[in-house]
Design a protein around this nucleic acid. Structure first.
Lengths: 113, 113
DNA sequence: TTGACGCATGCCGATATAGGAATATGTTAT
DNA sequence: ATAACATATTCCTATATCGGCATGCGTCAA
């Protein structure tokens, strides 16, 4: 079995930094492809392809307006990610506490060997 | 350019469901490889490889104890993900009509700084 | 010492990228 | 009808998976 497709789910789609930049940009409102490309300094086919991935996992919606296609954010698919990661919240604070304790321990041993 | 390595960052590491299951399991405390494999019904080499990825992106730490290696959660790398996704929180509960309103609000604030 | 155990790594195969260039499709304007 | 514009798609190449399976390599026990 190969690696999961980027279109498999929001997790895979969002693992790509360019696509995250697109989503961030779209928080400012819907944008046509060319504008996305210009704002993020990528060429148009590249933007189209990333937007397609985002569309397939439903993180963006498209609206046709004349010859342009306006892409808009649909962040609902990010919610499960936020919730899953949120389940670790207490562990990253705890990690700091443990690390601090460990570091102090080391310093203590250093002082009186 | 090919797709980013799974070891490129926490985003890519965590895009794989099996690895997410491992992290969830490790919230219950450190575990040796075989135990991870048993609990998640994967074979040992598979567990080892996933754990290696998680180790390379520093989402887990290893501690050697005799012939076993105890893997422990280090959730700090999840924090940036939580924060980034959290930036979209206001966008997923609201209906899209409200979202439009919000966008206009932003534009308004932009106009008069 | 000889196994048995715990774990990591190597190889294979099928699949899927991301970006770049060229091109196809479709819409508006002249 | 034709040109200009906006977007999507196709072809290409290099690279990296993920799971199975076999194997290598320390470490502990009899």
């Amino acid at each position: 079995m190969a690696r999961a497709a980027t279109t498999a789910d929001a997790w895979n789609a969002v693992a790509e930094p360019q696509r995250r930049r697109i989503l961030t940009l779209l928080r400012g409102g819907e944008q046509p492809v060319t504008e996305v490309a210009r704002a993020l300094r990528m060429d148009q086919p590249c933007a189209s392809k990333h937007l397609r991935v985002l569309r397939e996992v439903r993180l963006v919606r498209v609206r046709e307006e004349g010859r342009r296609r306006l892409y808009a954010l649909d962040a609902r698919g990010l919610r499960p990610i936020h919730e899953w990661v949120g389940g670790f919240q207490r562990f990253w604070n705890e990690s700091f506490a443990r690390l601090d304790a460990f570091v102090r321990e080391l310093a203590e041993e250093e002082r009186k060997p």
